[in-house]
Simulated scan of single mutants.
Amino acid sequence: MNLNPDILKHIELLVGSIGVILSLFFAIFLLSNRKQQPKANTFLALYLLAFSLRIGKSLFYNYFPIDPIIRNMFLGILLAIGPSVWFYVSLLKNPNKELRFKSYIWHYVPMFVVIGCCWFIPNDSGTISRIFYYSLIVHMAIYSSYSLFFLLKNKPTLASSKEVKIHKWLLFFVITTLIMLLISILISTRIIPYYLGIAFLFSVVVICFSIWALKNPFLFKLETEKYSNSSLNKSEAEDHILKLNQLMNDEKLYLDPELKLSKLSKKIGVSSKLLSQAINQIENINYSQYITQYRVEEAKKRLASEAFENYKISAIAYDSGFNSLSSFNAAFKKHTSITAVQFRKNEGKK
């Protein structure tokens, strides 16, 4: 069945516009709430603004003519993407890093230069025009590739769920950016003969960003709010968690269904209040959730092991530290998105 060209055109515009609108809204939200946001998010906002303006121009240009000078201005905005990727990654990985205006503004100088010279840059299918466009892609690719190298070289050393989530988010963010750059090249060389393909992809990416943000709201909150008057600094909290993780891995205390926070705090040598605070600050979860994740991982190991293939799921649940089958089922489904029965079947097929 062939779709009416007009209907297809409206669908293209609708889907492509979703990403632009969401991205602009997200960027404005981040910029308007800068005081309540980690400073890294200012650069995420710049990234979203630059991309949304560029994609918005592409959507508009597909239906209406745009003056070459205006097109060059929008192309120049792409030079804000690379630096924004790098500063967002580096600051989210190192939130205490001091960043002065002079240390980052020069990275954006090429953008201002290109926008200031947009009257003199040809915007046609000629050689100079194509070299100019590819140089923009290379500029973004260099920053994004270096950001990826930085992330791969600086994996979290502390077994913190929060640090791991931030690292995974940044990997997704950078790799997705590189994929969009690759698709831009494929479209410009007509290997992908679909001009709005990048707009469609951008909409999907922004929706994924939004879902990730909803699932991990700590990415958009200052962690100092809750414990602003506390004497426990981040270094001390990380030290407590390092000792706690070591204790859990060595002694498997989580197998005790009656395990209390007070028992753990005594073994580490801190008060229950400070240990609870350290778990909240570093892991971004409470004590109960912290213990539960160890118990679920233990259950997963046993369910996947041939040594326990004849054990009932209820027996594995109790042996992993859960004190009821219902709490085990709820926790397992929450952490793995599948039931224990399905997990065991999947492992048996491998």
Score class of each variant (00 low, 15 high):
302 R>I: 06
220 F>C: 02
41 N>Y: 04
15 V>L: 12
68 P>H: 12
2 N>Y: 07
28 I>N: 03
167 H>S: 05
162 K>C: 00
186 L>I: 09
301 K>G: 01
113 V>Q: 09
68 P>F: 06
299 A>V: 05
21 I>G: 03
80 A>C: 11
75 L>E: 11
37 Q>A: 01
231 S>N: 13
199 A>N: 14
190 R>G: 00
183 I>A: 02
70 I>V: 10
273 K>G: 00
12 E>I: 05
35 K>P: 00
332 F>M: 06
32 S>Y: 04
26 F>M: 10
104 Y>W: 15
125 S>G: 13
242 L>F: 10
122 P>T: 15
177 T>P: 03
128 I>A: 11
100 R>N: 11
90 S>P: 01
231 S>E: 09
225 E>W: 04
102 K>W: 12
225 E>M: 08
229 N>I: 12
332 F>T: 14
8 L>R: 09
122 P>R: 10
164 V>C: 00
288 S>F: 15
258 E>T: 13
1 M>S: 07
334 K>P: 04
24 L>E: 04
7 I>F: 10
188 S>L: 06
270 V>F: 01
176 T>N: 09
18 I>P: 02
72 N>M: 12
79 L>S: 10
149 F>L: 10
140 M>D: 06
286 N>V: 13
204 V>L: 15
272 S>G: 08
281 Q>M: 15
128 I>R: 05
130 R>V: 08
26 F>V: 04
258 E>L: 13
149 F>H: 07
6 D>T: 12
83 P>N: 08
34 R>S: 14
60 F>R: 13
166 I>D: 00
88 Y>Q: 04
114 V>M: 07
42 T>M: 11
116 G>Q: 07
333 K>T: 11
257 P>H: 15
162 K>S: 01
274 L>R: 01
3 L>H: 07
213 A>P: 00
253 L>V: 11
309 E>S: 14
208 C>T: 05
241 I>D: 00
167 H>C: 03
31 L>E: 03
89 V>L: 04
346 N>P: 01
165 K>L: 02
61 Y>M: 08
168 K>F: 01
293 Q>F: 07
51 F>G: 09
236 E>I: 08
182 L>R: 04
343 F>T: 10
23 S>I: 08
136 L>C: 06
14 L>M: 13
